[in-house]
Design a protein around this nucleic acid. Structure first.
Lengths: 243, 243
DNA sequence: CAAATAGTGTCTGTAAGACACTATGGG
DNA sequence: CCCATAGTGTCTTACAGACACTATTTG
């Protein structure tokens, strides 16, 4: 077996330039009808006082484990859906040294505010519309996450990751409306969701009470076993997206 | 400004464990009606004699630049479509040390065989069906690339990256057939492609000759300005993919 | 001429969206 | 009683796929 030294020198000595590998997490939730992202206020330079995505160094562990660990450090989020988003490694994205960051995307049901104490003193859920001028290149990472989640709602049952284990069709519709930023026709949405095989399955029960402003008690559903929605729930095409 | 030392020690000393960052490239093309991938035969341990994806260390450059450089080292491929595929960094994926590899996906028109000489002595286009038991975790990386390209043909004009600057509808159909592994109905495909706004635009010309076994001279088209296909060219849903 | 392909016409089933309507329950 | 909401019915339009057919070119 070759030594590390042999390995590196056999290829390219410049590979010795130190590179740090980190994970950053774009954790999204829908609260108060808004899409929100989990941010940390930085206490130290660089970018002191600015908001940033939660993240940190990768240890001797798989990348996804590192992302899950960083997320757990800031919230009680557990068993959330987590997927790799992309890797950001431009030289200069961190002014101190070369840092290659693997970004992960997390989806969580509405949660209470992060415990304001301990490590996570400065963690907060922030509406994505207000999450601007983040530290490092986190604006770009967040933008990539938003693009991804908007697209995935179309052809996967991902929206169910934003609601509790039992939910109403209206709650599901609120997720779509918040993520896509546009209202959906209630009646057509209802029929569409129920017509896609495996998207949701009925629990046979209803909520205890109707809506706050009246109306019948809606039925409750669970996530079904579909991994892909077929046919998909396509949002209306915008000319600007296509060209 | 903090020193590098401060930066690292302020977070986690274990981050000092050396990590190498590499890029690997899944370069795909359609030749002889088959989807093929560019592979390198390894001369050294580990995995000596096995095929591997082309790749190498990231220098002081953006990640995509590194991928483009590695690709250029093995072929004359230039100006090809390149996109990030995913990052693979499980401990143990390289037996020598921790290596985090950012995988890129490249699409190229049919090309002559890689120059058999110089650095690229052992580079070859291999039909994806025969690309098995690759070095490291490259089977998984290739599988991710295939999944991605199959999906992207549906809703993007990516197929035009596999053909020359001018092409016939039949050539485009051959790309879909090779990537999806199933034949498409010629008549319906023809009408569908022409009906999607911005997918292809007519050159007003035809080929010099008809097909080898007869038939009219087909018209030639260029790639249009669409970034997304709307409506998409969906392949028939398979139950196994959905559940 | 025979065979294969390019390109078009037509029909059918499915799905999306617009609109309308009934029933239910909270304030 | 008023009103918002849950859920369903219906109609129109768009599109995918099956099938048929004509025109064109090569061997």
């Amino acid at each position: 077996m070759n030594s590390e030294q042999d390995f590196l020198s056999a290829y390219d000595p410049r590979a010795y330039a130190p590179v740090a590998v980190t994970v950053d997490v774009v954790a999204l939730t829908v609260r108060d009808g808004e899409l929100q992202v989990l941010l940390i206020e930085r206490g130290e330079h660089p970018f002191a006082g600015r908001y940033a995505l939660p993240g940190g160094f990768v240890r001797d562990e798989p990348l996804e484990t590192a992302a899950r660990r960083e997320l757990a450090e800031e919230t009680e989020l557990d068993r959330v859906h987590l997927e790799q988003l992309g890797t950001f490694g431009d030289p200069g994205r961190d002014p101190r040294m070369r840092v290659v960051s693997v970004a992960y995307l997390a989806f969580a049901p509405s949660m209470p505010d992060p415990a304001s104490g301990g490590d996570a003193a400065s963690a907060a859920w922030v509406p994505v519309a207000q999450a601007r001028e983040l530290a490092f290149d986190h604006d770009a990472i967040l933008a990539a996450g938003l693009e991804r989640v908007r697209a995935k709602l179309e052809y996967t049952p991902l929206a169910t990751a934003f609601v509790g284990p039992e939910f109403t069709i209206a709650e599901l519709r609120a997720v779509y409306a918040a993520v896509w930023g546009e209202d959906l026709h209630a009646g057509n949405f209802h029929r569409k969701v129920l017509s896609v095989p495996g998207f949701v399955e009925s629990t046979g029960t209803t909520t205890e009470r109707g809506g706050e402003r009246g109306g019948p008690k809606p039925r409750l559903y669970r996530a079904g076993d579909a991994r892909l929605l077929h046919p998909a729930l396509l949002r209306p095409a915008r000319e600007a997206d296509i060209r």
